[in-house]
Lab assay of single mutants.
Amino acid sequence: EPEARKIVEKLINNGLSPEDVKRWAEKNNNPEVKKAAEEYQKR
Rank of each mutant, 00 (worst) to 15 (best):
A36K: 03
Y40S: 04
A36C: 07
N13Q: 14
N28T: 13
D20H: 05
K22W: 09
K10N: 13
L11M: 14
E19P: 02
E9V: 09
S17A: 06
K10D: 13
N28F: 10
E3H: 11
N13Y: 08
R23I: 11
K34G: 10
I7G: 01
K6A: 13
R5C: 12
E1K: 11
P18L: 15
L11W: 07
V33H: 01
E39R: 03
E9Q: 11
I7P: 00
A36Y: 09
N28I: 11
E32Y: 06
N13K: 14
Y40M: 10
G15I: 05
A37Q: 02
Q41G: 08
P18M: 12
Y40G: 02
L16M: 15
A37V: 14
A36N: 02
V21P: 00
L16S: 05
Y40R: 05
K35I: 09
V21Y: 01
E19D: 12
R43E: 15
A4C: 07
A37Y: 05
Y40D: 04
S17Y: 02
R5H: 11
S17H: 07
K10A: 14
N29W: 03
N28C: 15
K35H: 08
Q41F: 10
V21L: 07
Q41A: 10
K6N: 10
E38I: 09
E39W: 03
L16T: 03
N13W: 07
L16Y: 13
I7W: 06
Y40Q: 04
A36F: 08
N30D: 08
K6C: 13
K42G: 10
V33G: 02
P31R: 07
N28A: 09
E38Y: 03
I12G: 01
K10W: 14
Q41K: 07
I12P: 00
I7E: 02
K27I: 14
W24T: 04
R5W: 12
E1V: 12
N30K: 14
A36H: 05
K42F: 07
K10L: 14
E19A: 08
K6H: 10
A4T: 06
L16N: 05
P31Q: 11
G15V: 04
I7S: 02
E32T: 09
V8F: 13
N30G: 02
K27L: 14
Q41E: 15
K27C: 13
R23D: 13
S17K: 05
E39T: 01
K42Q: 12
Y40T: 04
W24A: 05
W24L: 05
K42E: 12
I12F: 06
L11Y: 04
Q41D: 10
G15M: 05
